[in-house]
Design a protein around this nucleic acid. Structure first.
Lengths: 125, 125
DNA sequence: TCTAGTGTATTATGTGTCTAGTACACTAGC
DNA sequence: GCTAGTGTACTAGACACATAATACACTAGA
């Protein structure tokens, strides 16, 4: 992966968000070991220091834990992961609604646009 | 306004987005003059250089135009404003759906969360 | 014990953002 | 013409982000 970090947001925050998403949707299981800092750096095409920062942040929000000399692991606390999932959804939906309101869009308009684009992006069930 | 720029995104981009939102929802009319660089800087609590950058960006995307010695004005091209409105909605909805997908949320889950939060944020009609 | 693979820490460099201050050119109105 | 209010341009400095390179400490396994 050669990495595409187009957004104006810092790379390390984008990576934190991406990893949280992968963890939350089960791409990484509870307790599973994440790639080493050096491997992940190569994988996403950034500097190892940047990945270290990402892993530190994941640890700070108690989503991952590091064992010196062994690696960094997704937390085994499944309750924490469920809460994370809920938090992420609420924060994203809230921010989305805020933006839509700022631009004066009505619920109807947004839903119509949503329905036109949904098929491309979200599983139905 | 003392300004709250908590996001990791650069202030000038947040301001561009905010102004686009205000223009698109009609807080500023087509052809209306925006506050001067210096006034806007005071109003939102940032440096005049930052506002200059914002106005330059608005001009670059043909949403505003500046007249030396007179001020910066919202474009009179209402077609451009309609397109901007559409662009903003599509890009926001697309990004939102992308994020939701990244976290493995289903359309049903998102809609449920949406309905729980909608009343606080969006006008119904 | 030795080695390879971990995370951790430090220093240096370049870039972008934001602030601060100053100066200049243009326009409108007196 | 003069003045106040515009946008424009430039230099300088502080700070965060990202990279680069290096060194160190810990762990597991041969």
């Amino acid at each position: 992966m050669a990495a595409e970090f187009a957004s104006a947001q810092p790379i390390y925050l984008q990576l934190v968000q991406r990893l949280c998403g992968q963890i939350v949707r089960g791409a990484y299981s509870p307790g599973e070991r994440l790639p080493s800092i050096r491997d992940m750096a190569i994988e996403v095409g950034v500097n190892p220091n940047t990945v270290q920062r990402v892993y530190s942040e994941l640890e700070r929000i108690t989503v991952a834990e590091t064992r010196r000399g062994q690696g960094t692991f997704v937390t085994s606390d499944q309750g924490r992961l469920r809460r994370l999932r809920e938090e992420l959804m609420v924060s994203h939906v809230t921010a989305f609604l805020h933006d839509m309101r700022e631009m004066g869009f009505t619920a109807e308009e947004v839903l119509q646009c949503w329905n036109e684009l949904r098929a491309l992006s979200l599983p139905e069930e």
